[in-house]
Structure formats: structure tokens, C-alpha cells
Amino acid sequence: MSNPNALLHRRDVVNELLRDRADLLVIAGLGAPNWDVSAAGDHPNNFPLWGAMGAASMIGLGLALAQPKRKVLVITGDGEMLMNIGSLATIAVEAPKNLTIAVLDNERFGETGMQKTPTASGVDLAAIATACGIRTSRIVRTMAEVTELRDLAHEGRGTVFAQIKINPEALVFVMPPADGVILTTRFRQSVLGDEALYN
């Protein structure tokens, strides 16, 4: 990289986090993280959100507790995380080993006109996660650190939180199915098998 201070590109980050994803289960927060995850490849093991802002981290917790042998990666934005920031306290107490929360932090509400979020004024989400008790919590600024984060998420040796500083670029939307029943049913069928269709 020519400029070590250059901000990361969100789709490079997500492509790397999902590299060789195997049976990783992915929750994508509403807005650009949904499009980023979908741009990396639509997949039945993705549950991309089109609404319910603030849900991503806690869907991740419920899923991680229900599927302790699978690795769960939540990819969301700084605005979405801030809307339910208290969930970091809840998650820190439960401390599932198989849950990673990766916040793509462009310091903006990107879908609504790029207004600044509190992280633009220095609010440190990783420090909040640390203070809640998530011991593996960090700010990520380089692709090498993204690769480390990818490996942590795939290893599942403890709850991980990362605030990934990214460029506030507006990219083309890449959309997954919008029908919540399709997203839910294909995810459950993939994770639980055809049994999921009969109950």
C-alpha cells in the first residue's frame, strides 16, 4: 500500500473477512454492510438485515448460543452498532467463544446523506467493548489487521469486537433477497437441514 495512512476500502475488508468462509454464519447489519456482504457473494449462511436497526449484534448472540459449534460473524456499521450499544454489555457477560462483531466504521450515517456519527467526534467503540469486558477488542486500520481479525473469527476462541476504520465511500448497492421469509427459511434449512422445513 503506497499510503500507510489511507483508510481501508469496505469491500476489500469484507472480502477478506469472508475469504474461505467455510461454514461461517454471517449476520449483516442494515445499510451498506448488507450490500458489502452481498457483494462478496450471496450465500444461504448470510442473514442480511433490511431493517430492525440495532438488531445485528443481538441476533449474533442468540445464534451463537444456539449453535455453539459454529462460528458467527456479525458485520455491521457504526450507526447500527451505536443504536444498541448496550448490547455490548449483554454480550460481554454471556461471552460466547464463537461470536465476532466487526463494525465497519466510516464515521457516517451512509444511507441518509453521510451525516456524521458520534465516532466522527472520537467515540471509541472498541474502548466501550473493552470496558464492557470483551477482552479481545481492537481498532483495525490495516489489511494485515483485517486478516488477523478474519482468523480470530474463524478460530472462535473467545468473543471478539473490532472497530474497522474505513473510507466513507458510497458504492453501488448489491442486494440480497429482500423477502424475510426467504432469508429466514434458507438460512435455517442450511444450518439445521431439511428438518427446518417441517417445524
Partner: peptide, 24 residues
């Protein structure tokens, strides 16, 4: 059973959606 204390009730709505996705 796993009892999870929430900081606000909406967290529980999302958590139980995740539980359902995972078969619980």
C-alpha cells in the same frame, strides 16, 4: 436454559430471532 439479562427489551427480540435462526 440460558438466562440472558438485557440492557433494553428490544435486544431480546433480536436475540430470540438469532436463536430461531440457530434452531432454539
Amino acid at each position: 436454559t440460558r438466562v440472558v439479562t438485557l440492557t433494553t427489551e428490544e435486544e431480546g427480540v433480536a436475540m430470540l430471532a438469532g436463536a430461531w435462526l440457530g434452531g432454539e
